[in-house]
């Protein structure tokens, strides 16, 4: 049976980060961008937990992951509020078109 090592975790985390990043970069919908950010945050959480399990850091990683989850929740709340306001103003949430400051 395949021994699950740190590398596997890190690879999963890297994929997750990449998908997240891809989502952030490519999606036009602000909600989808937020979801990409969630993915990135979760890839970071996997890293924290994995390093906590394989390293000599005690439970610091797990605690940190909990903090990140809390932060992600807070972030999602604020970001969704912003997105709601954007929708109210522009009647869409396409991040490409929210460029009023550019001109």
């Amino acid at each position: 049976m395949i021994h699950v090592s740190l590398t596997h975790y890190l690879v999963v985390s890297a994929f997750l980060f990449s998908f997240g990043l891809y989502g952030v970069v490519t999606r036009k919908n602000a909600v989808m961008v937020l979801m990409g950010i969630e993915l990135i945050l979760n890839s970071a959480n996997i890293n924290f937990v994995a390093f906590s399990k394989f390293g000599n850091y005690g439970l610091n990683g797990q605690i940190m992951a909990l903090f990140v989850i809390i932060l992600a929740a807070a972030e999602a709340a604020i970001a969704l509020a912003i997105v709601l306001n954007i929708y109210k103003t522009f009647a869409h949430v396409d991040v490409d078109k929210i460029n009023n400051l550019k001109e």
Binding site: L21, V24, V25, T26, R27, V33, V95, D96, N99, L101, K102
Partner: peptide, 14 residues
């Protein structure tokens, strides 16, 4: 490069 699109910037950052 100054597209005003955050996503583009993110790509540059990455």
């Amino acid at each position: 490069f100054q597209t005003g699109k955050v996503q583009t910037y993110v790509v540059f950052v990455v």
